[in-house]
Computed example of a mutant assay.
Amino acid sequence: MKIFLAGASGAIGSEIVSQLVARGHEVVGTTRSADKTARLRALGAEPVIVDALDRRSVVDAVARAEPEVVVHQLTALSGPMDLRSAKQMLAATNRLRVDGTDNLVAAARAAGARRFVAQSNSLWMERAGGPIVDENSRLEPRPPADAEQTVAALRHLERVVTGISWADGIVLRYGSFYGPGTGVSAASDAVTSAQIRQRKFPIVGKGTGVWSLVHIADAASATVAAIERGKPGIYHVADAEPALVSDWLPHLARALGAKPPRRVPAWLAGLVGGKAAVDMMLRARGISSEKIRRDLGWAPRFPSWRMGFTDGMR
C-alpha cells in the first residue's frame, strides 16, 4: 500500500517506517526538520517537510502522496526535558492532537484515503473499576487541573478519528514506550534514563499506579498490523504484564545499572512535579491488549517488560 506517515522521524515513526518498507509498502513520511530527511530516505521513505498546523500544506502534501492509509504519529515530545520544557512540549503536543488531527483528517478525506490510524496513549484511562481496563473504558473524565488540556486533547483525537464515516478510523492507545530512541534504553543519555541513573525519577508514595509498557519495536509492529488489517475503533497496545510503579521502576533502574529509585511522599512530589505526575504514579490503570492480539494476530517480541528490560534495551 501507499502510506502517508505524519511524524515519521520520531522514535516510533522511524520504527514504523522501517517495518512498513520491509513489508513492501511505499511510505511518504513527514518531518518538521530538513536535517532529518536524509535519515528518512535511508530508512526507505520519501521525506516531505510539513508543518502539521498549517492545513493548506498538510492537504497539499497528502494530496500529492495519494495514500491509501494516513497514519498520525505527531507529538512534540523530544529532546532534553525539565519542568519548563515538559510543559512547553505537552502544550505543543496538545495542539498537534487537536489542530494537527483535524488537518490530517481533512487531508485524508480530500485525498480519498480508506484508513486513518492515530496515536493515543493509556496513561489517562479512567481511575475507576479494577486495575486493568479494556477498550470499552473511557479516558478519565475528571483529571487533575494540570492534566485537563492533555486529556481533552486525547479525547478530541479519539472522538474525531473514531467518528470517521468515510474510512476506517483507528485509534491506538499505546502503553509507555521503552527501548532505543525513546530515551529509556541502556545506551541512552536522554533525560529519562539520566534521571533514573541520577535517582531523580522516584517512586511516589507507595507507587500504586498500574502502568502498561511496550517496547518501541513492538508498538510499531502493532501499528503495522492496524495499518494492514485493522477495523474501525480503538485498540490497546502493550505487553501482557501491567505492573505497579513500585514493581517495574526498580527493575528498570537495575537494567540501567542505577541504584534503586528514591521514595518521596505524595505531597512533596506534588509540590515539585504537579498533581498530574502524582496521579499517574498513584492512580494510573493498566490496559489489556487482548483485542489486538485476538483480532489482528499481533504478538509482541517482548511479552513482558521483565524480558524487555533485560534483552530489548540495546
Rank of each mutant, 00 (worst) to 15 (best):
77 L>P: 01
203 I>D: 00
69 V>L: 08
55 R>T: 12
213 L>H: 03
241 E>D: 13
114 R>T: 15
228 E>L: 10
91 A>C: 07
267 W>N: 05
7 G>N: 06
229 R>G: 15
219 A>Q: 03
146 D>G: 07
8 A>P: 02
267 W>H: 08
183 G>Q: 03
58 V>P: 01
139 L>W: 00
213 L>T: 02
18 S>Q: 13
246 S>A: 15
115 R>T: 04
36 K>N: 14
142 R>Q: 12
6 A>S: 13
54 D>I: 07
26 E>G: 09
228 E>F: 06
188 S>C: 11
253 A>V: 11
272 V>T: 13
12 I>W: 03
190 A>M: 10
281 M>V: 06
60 D>A: 15
261 P>L: 06
36 K>P: 03
138 R>D: 02
210 V>L: 10
152 A>D: 11
212 S>H: 05
203 I>C: 02
48 V>R: 02
144 P>I: 10
149 Q>L: 15
21 V>S: 07
288 S>W: 04
129 G>V: 10
187 A>M: 08
268 L>H: 09
16 I>N: 00
156 H>P: 08
204 V>G: 00
52 A>S: 12
225 A>P: 03
202 P>K: 06
110 A>T: 14
162 T>M: 10
257 G>S: 09
135 E>F: 07
202 P>E: 09
130 G>T: 10
75 T>A: 14
12 I>L: 14
278 V>K: 00
233 G>H: 09
289 S>R: 01
175 G>Y: 01
53 L>H: 08
290 E>Q: 13
247 D>H: 11
253 A>W: 06
74 L>R: 01
237 V>D: 00
100 G>Y: 01
128 A>E: 11
273 G>S: 09
127 R>S: 10
81 M>V: 15
156 H>W: 11
214 V>D: 02
253 A>P: 05
274 G>T: 12
170 I>M: 05
66 E>A: 15
77 L>Q: 12
17 V>S: 00
19 Q>T: 06
226 A>E: 02
25 H>A: 14
206 K>W: 12
287 I>R: 01
261 P>D: 05
166 W>C: 09
176 S>K: 05
174 Y>M: 04
198 Q>N: 14
71 V>L: 08
130 G>F: 08
308 G>D: 01
177 F>D: 00
309 F>K: 08
135 E>M: 11
234 I>N: 04
196 I>P: 00
106 A>G: 13
225 A>Y: 01
210 V>W: 11
86 A>H: 10
109 R>F: 06
30 T>N: 07
272 V>W: 09
307 M>D: 13
9 S>F: 02
218 D>N: 08
300 P>W: 02
59 V>N: 04
145 A>Y: 06
304 S>P: 08
130 G>D: 12
212 S>R: 03
63 A>K: 10
230 G>H: 03
301 R>T: 12
300 P>V: 04
142 R>F: 02
152 A>G: 12
233 G>C: 10
98 V>G: 05
283 R>C: 13
168 D>I: 11
77 L>R: 05
82 D>Y: 08
274 G>W: 07
274 G>L: 09
178 Y>L: 08
138 R>C: 04
94 N>I: 11
182 T>S: 14
8 A>R: 00
26 E>I: 12
254 R>T: 10
67 P>V: 07
98 V>T: 15
255 A>S: 15
263 R>A: 11
53 L>W: 09
105 V>E: 03
87 K>R: 15
109 R>A: 13
244 L>C: 12
192 T>H: 12
93 T>F: 10
123 L>G: 03
217 A>M: 04
304 S>A: 14
13 G>F: 01
